[in-house]
Amino acid sequence: MSFINYSSREINCKIVYYGPGLCGKTTNLQYIYNKTNPETKGKLISLSTETDRTLFFDFLPLSLGEIRGFKTRFHLYTVPGQVFYDASRKLILKGVDGVVFVADSQVERMEANIESMDNLRVNLAEQGYDLNKVPFVIQYNKRDLPNAVSEEELRNVLNPRGVPDFPGVAPTGVGVFDTLKAVAKLVLTELKKGGQ
């Protein structure tokens, strides 16, 4: 749910990174944080456990520039990927404008990917959203690992609808900004539609 402020001429949108545990959601945000100018970003907040697993969420505010005199700001969130944090994941999806699904390309994580995608669909529906209608992109992460499944196979299983998808290696930044730009674009296009 975007927030449009006519007085300060700002528009704020919320993007959520979703996916199974250890797929690289937080790594995506950390890469974005490290590679953006200090004046365009806020603090990266990570609510994580002592072993650096996301406990509640990571949060990164980002300014993208102006459109027709309106400053566009994106608030990036990750969810905790571990199955038993489902209650927290639901909360973070509240008011979402766009979703990035980060899939783990490793063959042994295929089932976890599918489970997480199903979980996303169910949790979005609980908040009144339809995954087929929300701005949505997929990143096939960990393309550099030897046990990675082919992109084609991942696409067949996870992306039957053919939403924008990107190969990624989050620690080195491969695909990270492509993914972010794609979802931001979809969110803005959706806003444009909403105003007609």
């Binding site: 006519y6 520039g65 459109i67 027709r68 566009t72 674009k185 803005l188 444009k192 909403g194 105003g195």
Partner: peptide
């Protein structure tokens, strides 16, 4: 929404 007026080019420019 004020965004009804924006064009695809505006979004691309960003």
């Amino acid at each position: 929404s004020p965004f009804a007026e924006i064009s695809d080019a505006d979004i691309d420019n960003l």
